[in-house]
Each structure stands twice: as structure tokens, then as C-alpha cells.
Amino acid sequence: MERDSFLSEMLRSRKAMFGAIVVGLIVLSAIFSPWLAPYDPGSQNLLGRLARPFTTTADGRYHLFGTDQLGRDIFSRLIYGARVSLLVGSVASLIAGTIGVSLGLIAGYIGGRIDSAIMRLCDVQLALPYILIAISVLAVLGSGLINIIIVLSLTQWVTYARVVRSGALSVKEKEFVLAAKALGFGPVKIMWRYVLPNVFAPVIVIATFSVAQTIVAESALSFLGLSVPPSVPSWGGMLADGRTYLVVAWWLATLPGLAITLTVIGVNLFGDWLRDYLDPKLQL
């Protein structure tokens, strides 16, 4: 039977639609932050400190989500904060994916000692808690956006490597790989054109979940003060700052927390549906 197009299939699933809309909105706000944010996220207004959501301060500025302890507009900061989260989430997942997929392909297709070496490396990686690696690497390299991305990609590649390796192990026994060898193609070409495309569906699914995981991990590192400098608004950083004021101003910590939760739920819902869509075995 002919399968419907990607879009019409997606429109039929409420889960997928919700996820796609949430993620879409957040991506849009990250891209268009300067135009969407009502105020400069860094501009302080000490007279309008800790304003409640939906209030107008004495100088006539309306704050949808209130202000923080320095009088900065929370709504604007949330919109700008999406940039850090999404940038780190997507770039780190992309790098991790590239490393993991390459190593997994090599391990699975070439096999032998190279396979053992790569898999032991995975074990080592999994045996260390990521936060420990993050703290030690960031302590040496110093914090900053690029270092955060490096650290998070280092902790995420293992999943890709393992999934791609197991896929490659089964695909390389397929007759079309033998046929490709009989046509005189070298190992690199076979890995790239014959093995990889046939194990790629799960990689896309892992990538979506890995974006969600990375966003949470980045927030955690921001919360610990290991991520971007305090001048750059980030959801994790806002959460950490707001914690002290939780009793007097609940919205400082709650709203960035909600933003993180919503993003992760959205990405996960979309990934869930994507997995069902790409896995023909689950098709009825």
C-alpha cells in the first residue's frame, strides 16, 4: 500500500502536531528573538524589580511574565534564552551524531580489533557520569558556549555509535553488500552508500531524543554556573538565579523551568511519532 506523505501523516497524529507546534514556536522565537522580545534582555530597571507577571511597572512598562531581581524583563530573557538552549542542543547533537555514527559504522563494518577498541571506549564513556566529565573538562578548558558544546557532544556520541554498530553488523551480511563488493567498490564507499543509508532511520530518532537530553544537560550545567557567562540569558542560568527568590517571587524560577519542560516534551513527542513513522515494523 502506498504510504501517505510525511506531512499528512503528521497532521493526523495529535501527539506529533503538538510536539511540532511547540518546537516550531520555540525555534521561531530563538531565530527572531530581537524582533519578538519587547525589551533588551540585559537592560536593568532597579525601580521595577521583581514585578509580578501581567503587571505594569511605575515607569509604564508592561511585563508579561514579570521581572527579575534586577528588573530585567523575564519574557524577553526567555525568548533569548531559547537561543542558547537550542543552539547547544542541536549543535551538540549534530557533532555527537557525526562522531557516533562514524565510529559505529567503522566498528560494525570493519569489526575485529577496531570494533573492540571502539566498544571499550564506549564502555569507559558510559562508566563515567557525564556531569563529572563536564565539570572536569570545563574546569580545565574554562566555560563558554563552544566548550559546553564540546563537552555535551563528548557525552552523547555513545548512543549513536552503539545503535549504528548493531545496525551495520546486520546490514553488512546482506547480499547487496556482497554484490557491491563484487562490483569492485571499496570499504569506504560501501559503508557510506550501502550500510549507512540502511541504518539511518534510528539515527534520526536518536537525534531528536538527544536534542532533548542535551537541552536538559545544558540547563543543568548553567544551573551549576558552568555554562555561558551570566551576561548571556539562558534558561538554566535563570533557573539558578531565581532559586534564591523562590519564596518571594515564584515566577523567576518557575517560568524558565516550564520553558525547559515544554521544549523537552515537545521534542520527545515529535521524536516518538517519528520513531513510529520511520519504523515499518510498527506500521499496521
Binding site: K174, E175, F176, L178, A179, R193, N198
Partner: peptide
């Protein structure tokens, strides 16, 4: 090869 069903890259 023997089995043309699986000898081509899908």
C-alpha cells in the same frame, strides 16, 4: 548472485 530480491540496495 542467487537471490535477486536482496542483491540490490533498497
Amino acid at each position: 548472485f542467487q537471490d535477486p530480491m536482496t542483491s540490490l540496495n533498497p
